[in-house]
Computed example of a mutant assay.
Amino acid sequence: MDYNQDVLPANVLHWNYRGFTEFPLSRLSGEESEVTDIYLKENLISRVPKEICRLENLESLYLSGNDITELPKEISKLRCLKCLDVSGNRLRKLPDEVGEMRSLKFLILDENELTELPLRLSELRALRYLSVCDNQIQWLPQKPVYNYHHCEFRFWRNLRLKTIPYSLWYHMFRDQQTRSLNIGCLNVQTDLPAANKKIRLKIAQGSREREIDINTPIQHDKIMGRNKIFPPSLYELARRKIYQILSDIAKRHTDHNEISSWRDYNYNNVRNLEQNFEEFNIDSNYDINGNNTVTPLNKISNSGKVRSYYVPSDILNEHFRFLPQFMKVELSNGPVSRCENALCKIPVFDFVFYEFCFGKIVLIDNMTDVILSAAFCSKTCADTWRIGKEVIPWSLIEDH
């Protein structure tokens, strides 16, 4: 490879501070597969091209200090990528397909404009460091990382973040010390306006009572209140059941390293579902140009390595092709949370009952109180969880 001595060694591209206004993929002259590391810090790049997937052996990509507003979903095809640094840009959203980058160990997203995180981040079992400090995060997934104890998760200084999920606090912060002096968010005293559907908490502080508005995930469209209780839709119940089946099959694939389908597990209700969809004559495996969009599931991944685990989206794309595309997208991304009742754990998509309480996070030199949110599949589960806890009264505020 000849880069006019820009690169030493040849498989590592040191292109920091070069004034690039475009991602310099064209400079590789058809030798993209040789590159393992690219340094493009502090340039003027505003777009990452879809063709980045040609860098099939890329292991590290450093793009901090540019002007990038979004990443193409094709970046998920970089199956060898271990480190991705896009801090100091203007990212507003991450593609859901980021969950397919299963070699990723370090994901640095500090100083961007992100308001939420993809639910599929929890599919990244190799992830060891995830940082989303100094963004505009309004809520956190119940499980942002797969393993709380082997991945350092940092979300400091997201001023719009007022609460964290109870299970996230329970597994990451309960009786453990953080590596921070100041979280810089979760501050009851800071009252920025909520952007999505709001929940208003009434917090008693000594002789005073104050109100604070909480952002909720936009996916939680149907929120039950204390005086507003209604049953979940049949669609919600169907998604819960199908996702549980997907999770079950994915676990069996992982534990036994076998390639099988739901048909092997006597899921007669799913067989009936398939037959019903066949009557609608929906062929959701092809795009508008007639191209097959389904990649067959096999033991060998795109990087040539044997799959170490399977997730629900793998099973969905291989064995549930009969489902309409909008449902496959929702099931691939997974539920926003699971019921916080330890004896339930049912997936929760758009129908939810909330409860709130206080928890403590131990910093390096002090301790701080934070508001914890708990999501439930039903009022019954919520009432069970409330026993022995000092819950915070709340009321639902209509969309604005």
Rank of each mutant, 00 (worst) to 15 (best):
K241H: 11
N135P: 13
F353I: 13
S46V: 09
R226V: 06
E340D: 12
I361P: 01
S337Q: 03
R79H: 15
E74L: 01
L28S: 07
E100N: 14
I346H: 03
F20G: 00
I218W: 08
E236Q: 09
I218D: 01
R157C: 12
V145S: 03
R79I: 09
G388R: 14
L40H: 02
R27N: 14
Y62D: 05
S373M: 08
R120N: 05
Q325A: 14
R79V: 11
E100W: 05
N112T: 06
R321E: 13
L192R: 04
T384K: 15
Q244S: 15
N333W: 09
P9M: 04
Y62E: 13
S103W: 07
L58F: 05
E390L: 09
E355F: 03
L181N: 13
K389T: 01
I164E: 07
D314E: 10
F277R: 04
I45N: 03
S247C: 15
I346M: 11
R47S: 07
V311S: 04
K105C: 14
R321P: 00
M172C: 14
V294K: 11
Y243D: 06
L273P: 01
K198D: 07
N341G: 06
M327L: 15
P144K: 02
L8H: 12
L186D: 02
T216I: 12
N341V: 03
F376Y: 07
